[in-house]
Write a protein that binds this DNA or RNA. Structure first.
Lengths: 140, 140
DNA sequence: GGCGATAACTGGAATAATTCTTGATATTAG
DNA sequence: CTAATATCAAGAATTATTCCAGTTATCGCC
């Protein structure tokens, strides 16, 4: 098996620009962290994980960088109830299953060919721009 | 004609207890407000609407009453992104369509016989306890 | 009806996540 | 190189919510 396991000793290259957003050093570090640890971290998690490699980084910068990437459609922001926002580089249409026993969040997709709008009774004339769904429970 | 049409001049009676929760005067007022204006108000909205009829009411009480009713399954708490929580007396399984143009929130149900779990690829062994879904868009 | 125990309520202080503000730095365009 | 623009840092401010301490209401029982 020769799949590319992420090697912490080798930094993943991030381009200088993604979707029209200039990828500054801070944004590169944040984005790299997100794609290497796909565990839906909070802004604070991101900050704690990279601050040692980027000495003067401030938490406010992490917030603004994440926000810029969300606005440019590079990552997604996910909210569970009123907890802190979490961030996710998976851009495919998907929702989340929150395992209450472990706290682990699993991405969940629709079965092929299914769209949420097709199985719902929407108000007449509804134009859907965005869909979010979350399940809570546990695994047996 | 003996049916009890809701008459705004006559206060809707709320029982002394619902699902094992003692319905104090504050809880009765809050619950009555929720079923009479089913527009998904925030805790603060609830407070503003009833404080004149319940002079010493405090916002903290509105929060704890709403929380008690949520815990007892009398009402539901609904979150949109990171906005303030909203409250809803509709206990049937449903989600919400948020009209970005007007800010109005419409309840959305599944088409008959459909359950979200049936159209999703869930992680193996997932036991779903709770489902939330939200759509954003507008009406034409 | 009175009385102690328990539950609920109030008002203000405290908290957590996030956003704002201001000044410093870096980057790009010319 | 220099001006204009974008980004960043640090701390203050904001918002929604929860906590706390003291008071009030309600319940069970004699």
């Amino acid at each position: 098996m020769v799949s590319k396991a992420p090697n912490p000793a080798v930094e993943l290259e991030i381009p200088d620009e993604i979707s029209g957003l200039r990828m500054t050093r801070q944004r590169q570090h944040i984005y790299r962290m997100l794609i290497q640890h796909r565990d839906h971290p909070t802004a604070n998690d991101v900050f704690m994980r990279i601050k040692d490699t980027l000495p003067n980084l401030s938490l406010a910068t992490v917030y603004t960088c994440l926000d810029a990437m969300v606005k440019h459609g590079i990552i997604r922001q996910v909210n569970f109830d009123r907890g802190p926002s979490r961030f996710c580089p998976n851009l495919a249409e998907h929702g989340h299953f929150h395992d209450d026993a472990t706290g682990i969040i699993h991405d969940v997709t629709f079965r092929p060919g299914i769209h949420l709008e097709d199985v719902l009774d929407l108000p007449p004339g509804a134009i859907v721009k965005n869909v979010e769904f979350t399940l809570r429970g546990h695994l047996v």
